[in-house]
Amino acid sequence: MPYLLNNSQNSNPPGSPRSKWLTVSYQPVSLFTLKRSDATSKAARSNLVPTPYAIKMALLKALLESQGKHHQNDFEIWIKSEFTWIRDLQIYLLPPEQLVVNRNGYKLRYYDQTTDKADKNRSTVPMLEGFVFREWIHLQGELKICAGECDKLTQLTQLFAQINYFGKKGCFFQFLPDATQQTDTPTFTPNPSNSFTVQPMDDLGKKTTFNRINPFSNEKAQIDKDRIIEPGFLPLQLRSTSARYDFYQRY
């Protein structure tokens, strides 16, 4: 998902009928990690930046927490409409200026889920020991997110302002209200000549429904239908690498 900054466009005043795209900025305030879709429970590489799927799920979480209690009597109708416009957003990301990926190995004790299915007549050891592999990313600079086309930019801005983490809980980001822009075209657009790093980008399928991604529903989401994974290209160059870290710099 490569990008080209568009500095020639004019920003429209908030509420302008031409404004269809919203650009917001976040300042990372802690390490970031978000397991890739092809990761396992014991060996998990991290995405370098949040994916469109993670961003839309964060928007949905903010929507439900702030407005869900007001729609107890018409929840099904309300969430169908709200979920549709969030699902259909097109998301572009501009990474921070520098990223350092730290690779770590941990020795953990974890619960053996097969214990529940084991023979009850023999002794079992429900707690096992093992090594896990994780990546934590230090982001230096601002993370920019451009979302559109949408006619609910005021509501979208309010939802973004309520988000304080992406990825794993504890990966905090500070919303920067003064850096918010409403424009009639994206503030940055794909530019294949400046893409050096590939990252799988998962997103919501065009026809998926709220019940498919709702963990409390009996309906199950399907890969390549309700959750699609496509290669994304980031304008990042690998400047230095070793067995313990990777250093990227934005082009």
Rank of each mutant, 00 (worst) to 15 (best):
K20F: 00
Q72H: 08
G148W: 01
P186F: 06
P192K: 07
K107Q: 04
F188W: 08
L64P: 04
L156A: 02
L64G: 12
N104K: 12
P96I: 08
L156I: 09
K206G: 02
I213D: 00
Y3I: 15
S19W: 00
A58I: 14
Y3Q: 15
G130I: 07
E230L: 15
D112W: 05
V198S: 11
D178W: 07
Q155W: 09
P190K: 03
L204N: 07
S81L: 04
L31G: 01
K56S: 01
D119H: 02
A58T: 10
H71R: 14
V24M: 02
I228Q: 03
K120E: 15
S217R: 06
S16R: 05
Q140M: 04
G167R: 06
A62K: 12
R87H: 02
Q72F: 07
K169M: 11
Q249S: 04
G167H: 05
Q90G: 05
L34C: 14
K69G: 00
N12P: 03
E230T: 15
T33F: 01
F188C: 09
S123K: 13
Y111S: 01
I79M: 14
G148N: 01
K206F: 08
K220I: 10
G15H: 13
L128F: 09
I137P: 00
N104V: 13
D178Y: 03
T51D: 01
S46H: 04
R244T: 08
Q113I: 15
C150S: 15
T209L: 07
T84S: 12
T197F: 03
K80A: 12
Q27A: 14
V125F: 14
P192D: 08
T241I: 06
L176D: 07
D224S: 07
S25F: 02
V198P: 02
G130L: 03
Q72G: 11
I77C: 05
S242M: 08
S193N: 15
G205W: 12
R212T: 12
P50E: 07
Q67M: 09
T33I: 09
E82H: 13
R45C: 14
L48H: 06
A54F: 10
I229T: 09
D184K: 11
N73Q: 05
